[in-house]
């Protein structure tokens, strides 16, 4: 079970991170404002990065096909999470959510 998770962990972490950032924008912004939303973004991103780094580290040494694929997916996931987070730095938060 844990191995299976490890193998698909990277894309799943990306998907969850993406969903949290997108979903929270409406919910958090309309109730608690942009500060709280910024905290959510930061927290979710750190958590996702932690998972991804863990996946990458624990599969880096593997030689089997599945491990190598999981490793590469981990790197892709890292790229994906960073790309997703980029707009949060550039676009003002909570604009147009009223």
């Amino acid at each position: 079970m844990f191995r299976t998770f490890l193998r698909l962990g990277a894309p799943l972490a990306w998907a969850l991170h993406f969903l949290v950032l997108y979903g929270a924008e409406f919910l958090v912004c309309s109730r608690w404002g942009s500060q709280a939303y910024a905290a959510v973004v930061a927290g979710a991103t750190l958590a996702a990065l932690a998972v991804l780094v863990f996946v990458v580290r624990s599969t880096a040494a593997g030689t089997g096909f599945v491990d190598r694929v999981a490793f590469a997916l981990g790197l892709m996931g890292l790229g994906g999470v960073l790309a997703t987070t980029m707009p949060a730095f550039m676009i003002p938060m909570c604009v147009g959510t009223a």
Binding site: A83, M86, P87, M90, I91, P92, V95, G96
Partner: peptide, 16 residues
């Protein structure tokens, strides 16, 4: 990444 940054900058100029 460069393009995305540029696009976001244009967007910011329009909406913000």
């Amino acid at each position: 990444a460069a393009l995305l940054a540029y696009g976001l900058w244009v967007m910011r100029a329009s909406v913000a």
